[in-house]
Structure formats: structure tokens, C-alpha cells
Design a protein around this nucleic acid. Structure first.
Lengths: 229, 229
DNA sequence: GCGTCTTATCGTCGGTGTGACGAGAAAACA
DNA sequence: TGTTTTCTCGTCACACCGACGATAAGACGC
């Protein structure tokens, strides 16, 4: 099977698990499907990969097009591919899922394809109300995010460019669903080499002593890792 | 773009990074291409996904067909997808790469498609002698394997069903390319709950005191992780 | 202005895991 | 029988961790 007519034809899509932290809870960006199948159901944003673009490009493009989110501020990585033969009743589709971690954003803008888009707390998404196999993709994405916070500086992708230790801690608490000791957390992240860069700036957030404002440092891993036990 | 004629058609393949430990070194299974493009170059084994099979099934099938390796003994997981528009000059191909960790096997059996197959030490694979983007896929697979040994019981996938602590340590040393202290390694793996099950059996390997023989335990993670520093 | 509250930041302390390494156990080999 | 080799168990100093006390520095109510 080597002639161009011989290989099975697939449609290839990218689906996006876009996560953010709002009001102390992890949220995922969902769109409501306007077409069959699964018309009216919530789904992950996504779309077809174009004939001439890389998978990563396609994901970034769909992210901007369909959700108005620009990758620059956050983090985009490939999550995995899903290609069960019957996952889409119309045709054979392989979806390359991507994970996006974004700072809290004003409001989801419904894109061209989607009837509506909304941030939904991940623990309020019932598995059976998502289209296709998106419940599994979402679960894999959330688990990936939870695991990566342990040993990577990725939590900062949920924050604005300048942030305080408390804001960073709030991200961990939201993603892990668990309260962390502010003193130990402060010690760990400030002592991890290259993780945070002190801007010298201070910021007072309502009550309490003003907090130092940091930027992301050059570190690519957190050693030793934080523990989510 | 919703009619079946509208979406771009892709070929979807699975490529396999099959790793094993031989003679104290990490080896990868390569096949020599018998057809253009890249005729005569080494490549990762792989092939087209069939119209009705899941990606994981396709990887397991290609593994058995093309290399004679049966997954049962080892470990098979998805590594990631590669879909640069120009990665195959013939057509638009998205490859879903999989990572296989297998015990040392007698000899690679050249499969139907491949002119030849061979175990090659990974540190002797020159990047520019691999077909397509397989050098990058291989690098990603090796890095995934190295990282996973830290916190998962996956090293046992490189061993036979029953193995000694020294054999397990040899796997770590081969994959990480670094000598480990036998005493500290022994302490860590035997004290990690659920990692090893003592079979009661002993085995004497040439000289030295006979070693206890273990099977894999039910643990899915190693806590605390081993460190490869 | 002055206490009070709240949050940020720094320190302390006991427990635990770690790497470096010593020492004994149990085999093969000369 | 001694030597060598490898496996296995201990020891010890050190780093780190979680729990938590103490202090710093702002806002707030009066």
C-alpha cells in the first residue's frame, strides 16, 4: 500500500482543553454545538487541521479563532490523540487534543463556529453532557495540568505577567482542590532557584501587608517538586 | 465545512519507538527502508492506521507485524503526534508515535514491510541518518522513558517477569547512563510500598551472593520518586 | 491616633528521606 | 581455605518537609 489511493483517509482535528482559574476554581472553556451530531451539547472548542499547517499552529489558530484567547499570555502543549473508529458518527476522525493554560480572561467571545462559549467549573461538568469523547479528553487534560504543576513552573501560565506568591498559591489550590500552607508554600517557591524574579514592586490587595510582585524566572523545572499529597 | 467532502484528507500512521536494554545499553529498534523516499535509511517501525481500529490497536498490531514483538511482556503508550505539513513529501501524514518498552528479545525479525530490522544503541544513532522526522520522535521517546523511570514502576517492563534488584538497577543505569549506588538503590526499591513482590526464589548469577527474585508489585507510582541527578 | 484584623514573610523544630559509605552474608573461584 | 564478588543490612550527617509560632506592614473601625 504505497500509491496515494491506497491509504485510508482520515479527517484530523485539534480539540482544545482551555483551562483557567476563576474565583478560586478551575474552569474549562466549552462551546455549545450548533450542529448535529450532538447539537446543543457542550463540547471542547476545536476544528479541522488545514492542509498546510502544523498541529501546533492549528491549535493556536483555533484557539484564537474560536475563543478569542491568544496563546502569548498562557501555555499551549499537545495533550494526546484520540482516534477511536466510532468517536464521530460522520467519518473517521483523529483528534489531536491540546492543553491550554491561560490567565483569567474577561469573557469568552463566541467564535464563528460556536453558538456560545462559556467558562465552566471543571467539577461541575457532568461527563455525559459533553459531545463525542470530550469528557475523557477533558479528564486527561485536567490530570495533566495537576501533575505538571508539581514539577514545572507552569502555574505561572495561569497568572498575569506579574503576580504575587499568594496569587500563585491560589492557582495551586484551585487546580489541586486543596489548601496549602501559605508559609511553607512561600518558602518553597521563593527558594526554588530561577523560579521567580523579584520585580521590586509591591502590591497591596485589599487588607494585609503588601506582597512582593514577581515575574516568571528562567527555570524550566521546580527542584525539588511541590507535593500535592 | 461540514459536508464529508469539505475536510482535508490526511493519512494517519503510527510510528513506534521500541526501546530495550541490551548489554547494559539502551537500544532502539530500527528498520531499514526499502522504498522511496528515504530508501535505504533507518527508520522507526510503523505503518498506516486501518479504517477500523483504534490508535492503540494499530500500534500493537504494527508492533507484532513488523517487529515480532508482542506487547504483553512490555509496555505500550502513546507518545505524541507529529504532523508538520512537509514531513512526508508524498502526502499529508500525521503520525501518532507510540513508545514501547520491551524486555531484551532474541533477535529482531524483519517483518513484511521492512527490508531489515536491528537493535541499535540509542547513543550511536546519528540524527541525520533517520528518515523523516524520526530523529525527533526518537529523542522525545527516550526522554519520556528517562523521565518516567523516576516516578513509575516502568523499569520492570524492560525486565523479564521475574527479576533481581541488580537487573532492575542495570535498567536504570542503562537508561539514565549513570551508575547508581547498589546499596541505596536496593533500599529505595525494596522499601517503596507495592513496587516489588518477593517470590521467595533466589538466583545466583555467576559470582557473588545469590539475589532475591522479585515480581512487579501492584504499585503504579514510586513514592518518593527516584532521582536521576 | 489607636487598637484590631488581615495578609505577607521569616524562623524554629522534630521527623523523614538521602547519599556516602562501612560491614556482614553467601556464593564462585583459585 | 582464603580471595573475590555480589547481595543485603546498617550507620551517620545532612537536607528538606510539614506544622506552626512570631513578626511586619498594610487596611479598617472607632
Amino acid at each position: 500500500m504505497d500509491a496515494p489511493e491506497d491509504w485510508p483517509r482520515f479527517a484530523v482535528t485539534v480539540d482544545l482543553v482551555v483551562l483557567t482559574v476563576r474565583d478560586g476554581a478551575l474552569h474549562v472553556l466549552l462551546v455549545r454545538r450548533g450542529e448535529d451530531p450532538w447539537r446543543g451539547a457542550w463540547a471542547l472548542p476545536g476544528g479541522f487541521v488545514r492542509p498546510v499547517e502544523d498541529l501546533h499552529e492549528a491549535a493556536a489558530r483555533e484557539l484564537a479563532e474560536e475563543t478569542g484567547v491568544h496563546q502569548a499570555a498562557g501555555h499551549l502543549e499537545q495533550l494526546g490523540s484520540y482516534g477511536a473508529p466510532d468517536r464521530d458518527p460522520r467519518m473517521r476522525v483523529v483528534s489531536v487534543a491540546h492543553l491550554v493554560l491561560a490567565p483569567d480572561l474577561p469573557e469568552p467571545t463566541a467564535g464563528t463556529d460556536a453558538a456560545a462559549a462559556a467558562w465552566v467549573p471543571v467539577d461541575r461538568v457532568a461527563g455525559d453532557e459533553l459531545a463525542f469523547d470530550h469528557a475523557r479528553i477533558l479528564a486527561d487534560g485536567v490530570e495533566r495540568a495537576r501533575a505538571k504543576l508539581e514539577y514545572s513552573p507552569l502555574a505561572a501560565a495561569f497568572c498575569a505577567e506579574r503576580f504575587t506568591v499568594a496569587e500563585l498559591r491560589a492557582v495551586y489550590e484551585a487546580v489541586w482542590g486543596r489548601a496549602l500552607d501559605p508559609r511553607n508554600f512561600h518558602r518553597k517557591v521563593t527558594s526554588a532557584p530561577g523560579l521567580l524574579v523579584d520585580t521590586g514592586e509591591r502590591r497591596t490587595e485589599g487588607r494585609g501587608r503588601p506582597a512582593a510582585v514577581y515575574r516568571r524566572g528562567p527555570a524550566t523545572t521546580i527542584a525539588p517538586p511541590l507535593s500535592r499529597d
